Amino acid sequence: MSDTDMGEALWEAAEAGNTGEVTRLLEAGAPVNWAESDSGRTPLITAAEEGHVEPMRVLLDHGSDLEAKDKNGATALIVAAGNGHVDAMAMLLDRGADLEATSTAGETALILAARFGKFAAMTMLLDRGADLEAMDYQRLESARESKSEALEAQGAKMEEVLDAQDAEMEEALAAKQAEMEGALAAKQAEMEGALAAKQAEMEEALAAKQAEMDAQAAAAEAYRTATVAAMAALEHRVKQLEDLAQLL
């Protein structure tokens, strides 16, 4: 591969955050400070733009230029600050990046962080000693207003979402309550039906038992009557035999 091909491959790997590929290409001799033709950004600057800390570390370990600038005059630190990538900024500053480097438009990392409302990045830069006097306060106020408007819009959106969720929950609760009431009514009807069926079954069984007992009582009465009649007939026969015996 030519230097251009390897440089382009390195740039793409840095942009994608592919640490392994960045390492492989550098060890294969890829030019660490190769700049993309349209933006003028080196692999380090594009990795900083995306906040890919580990590829940045590998690039710096292989001699990447901390202060290289793109076509807008922005360094890796300025680009990282504008995107709010505080971990990438911390590593660049630890490696000695210039806090007060300016872009072609005269913007430092602090100014760019303020312009895009990256307050965590601003705090880090100020803690590291960034020159507050270099700040464009009008831009800072504009950034604050933009941030406030964004927060208000986000709050309104959250309220809409919460209202929608409340309505959805109330609807679901009403549906669940109706479902439970329907199930309860069905269960009650089922139990009442089962109870009525059981009662009818018991009444039928009782009636059958009563009929059986009545039949048994009638049979017993018939048996008693027949027995009495048989005894009377037997007594009559005995009397006849006694009378006959006296005649003889």
Rank of each mutant, 00 (worst) to 15 (best):
L25M: 08
I78Y: 05
M91K: 10
D38Q: 13
G17H: 07
S39W: 14
A74P: 10
D38W: 11
L26N: 01
G17P: 07
T42I: 09
G82Q: 08
S37H: 13
A28H: 06
V86W: 06
L66S: 02
G82V: 12
G82N: 09
M91V: 14
T42C: 04
L60P: 02
G51E: 07
A81Q: 03
D70T: 09
A68R: 03
L44G: 03
R41D: 07
D65C: 08
V79L: 10
E67D: 11
L59M: 05
I45C: 02
R57V: 14
L77C: 07
H85D: 05
A80Y: 03
T23S: 15
E36H: 14
A48S: 09
S39K: 14
L92S: 04
G51S: 10
P31V: 02
L26G: 07
L77P: 02
S39Q: 13
T19V: 15
D65K: 03
A30Y: 05
G51H: 09
N18W: 12
R41I: 10
L25N: 01
P31K: 06
E50L: 14
D94Q: 06
A47D: 05
A88Y: 05
G17R: 07
M56I: 10
L25Q: 01
E21S: 15
V58K: 05
D87S: 15
